[in-house]
Structures are given as structure tokens and as C-alpha cells.
């Protein structure tokens, strides 16, 4: 299955709009006051969840491409990766603004005292160079190999993001464990392919 260029363009537009749906749901909820008793917590949780969801989806593109043989799937990956960044920005801004109201004193204390906050910041910092080098132009400037090496930090980011979630949870680690399992599977597949290639 190979979509024609107009089909691919239509697919990209549809996917783009679909990726904005979680934000639309939050905006709707905020406008109509349906986010529950603690809307700011709901927004923080939801944007964090969606950053992680898009991370899992982005990491699934390559395995899916290999399983189906649909090489064109790779052309959707940059957009998905940028949506990881997009929801991570919203997640961070929610924390800085709606949770801490830019009280830098408190924010610095929070980072120093709470390992999961520190980890969240570190994860976000690692996302920045990837978002900044997502364009074709950056790819050409860096050269394929260097670009690829840089973008492999997404594997570390995925692990850090799950640990950030895990450490935030007070008691029931079921949901972070689900993400951990998904990411372990997606990274494990890559390690396995690598090994298989070396053995051959």
C-alpha cells in the first residue's frame, strides 16, 4: 500500500487535527467547567499523559513500518514527535503557570527537593534539541549520521519520562507500569533487531 502524494497530504492534515483533539477536549472542558473539582490538576495530568502517549506512538512508527512494509509511515513520524514536544510544553507551562504562578523561588525549591520534578525538567531539556533539529534543513546541516545519533536520545527521554511519572505516583503504579511495559517492548524490539543484524 503506497498512498499517492495528495492522499499522503490528506492523511497528514487528518492526523494533525486528530493530534489536536486532546487539547480541544481540555479547552472545551475548561470553557464549560467539566474538568472536575480540580481543573488544574486535570490539565496537568492530561497534558503529561498525552506527551507520553505521543512518545509511545512515535516510537511505534518504526516497528509498525517494519511489520507492515509501509515505508511511507516514516513520513508521519516527525509530526508525531513534534506533538510529544507540544504536549510536553503544555505540561511544563501548566506547572510553571497554573500550578506555581511563576514563583521562581518555589520552583527552584521544588526542583531541588522533589526528584520527579527534577526528572521532568531534565526530560524536557533533552527534548529541546530534538524539536530544534526536526526540520529537513537541520537534518541536512547536521548530516544523516549525526542527526540520527542525536535523535536516538529519544530512547533515554522515553525512559526518563516514565520514571518521572512513576516517581510522581503516590501509591498505585499500575498506569506508569503500563507505559514502562510499552516502552520496554518498543526499545526491546530495536535491541533485538540490532542483535539479529550483528549475528547474521
Amino acid at each position: 500500500m503506497q498512498p499517492t502524494p495528495p492522499q499522503l497530504a490528506a492523511l497528514k492534515v487528518t492526523l494533525f487535527l486528530l493530534c489536536l483533539a486532546p487539547l480541544a477536549q481540555l479547552a472545551w472542558g475548561a470553557a464549560y467547567n467539566t474538568l472536575g473539582a480540580n481543573p488544574i490538576e486535570a490539565i496537568t495530568r492530561s497534558t503529561g499523559d498525552w506527551a507520553l502517549n505521543f512518545l509511545v506512538i512515535t516510537l511505534a512508527v518504526t516497528p509498525l513500518r517494519r511489520a507492515t512494509g509501509w515505508a511511507w509511515l516514516i513520513r508521519l513520524r516527525r509530526m508525531l514527535g513534534l506533538f510529544v514536544f507540544f504536549y510536553a510544553v503544555l505540561h511544563l507551562v501548566t506547572y510553571l503557570w497554573l500550578d506555581q504562578f511563576f514563583d521562581w523561588n518555589d520552583i527552584v525549591k521544588d526542583i531541588a527537593k522533589r526528584p520527579f520534578i527534577l526528572l521532568g525538567f531534565a526530560t524536557f531539556a533533552l527534548l529541546l534539541p530534538l524539536a530544534a533539529t526536526s526540520s529537513h534543513f537541520a537534518l541536512r546541516r547536521l548530516g544523516g549520521r549525526r542527526w540520527q545519533n542525536l535523535h536516538r536520545t529519544i530512547y533515554a527521554i522515553a525512559i526518563l519520562a516514565v520514571v518521572h511519572y512513576w516517581w510522581m505516583v503516590k501509591l498505585d503504579t499500575f498506569r506508569p507500569a503500563l507505559y514502562a511495559a510499552a516502552i520496554a517492548l518498543l526499545l526491546g524490539l530495536r535491541a533485538w533487531w540490532r542483535n539479529a543484524k550483528h549475528l547474521r
Partner: peptide, 19 residues
């Protein structure tokens, strides 16, 4: 006295915007 997960200096009163 801080909790390892939450700062205890401020609180969000449910129904209010600012802490």
C-alpha cells in the same frame, strides 16, 4: 515540614484559582 512528593507551604482550595 515538606513531603517528598508535595510542597506543603501552599495549598489549592478546591473552587479557587490561586493557591
Amino acid at each position: 515540614v515538606d513531603h517528598p512528593r508535595w510542597s506543603q507551604g501552599k495549598e489549592r482550595r478546591i473552587g479557587e484559582f490561586f493557591k
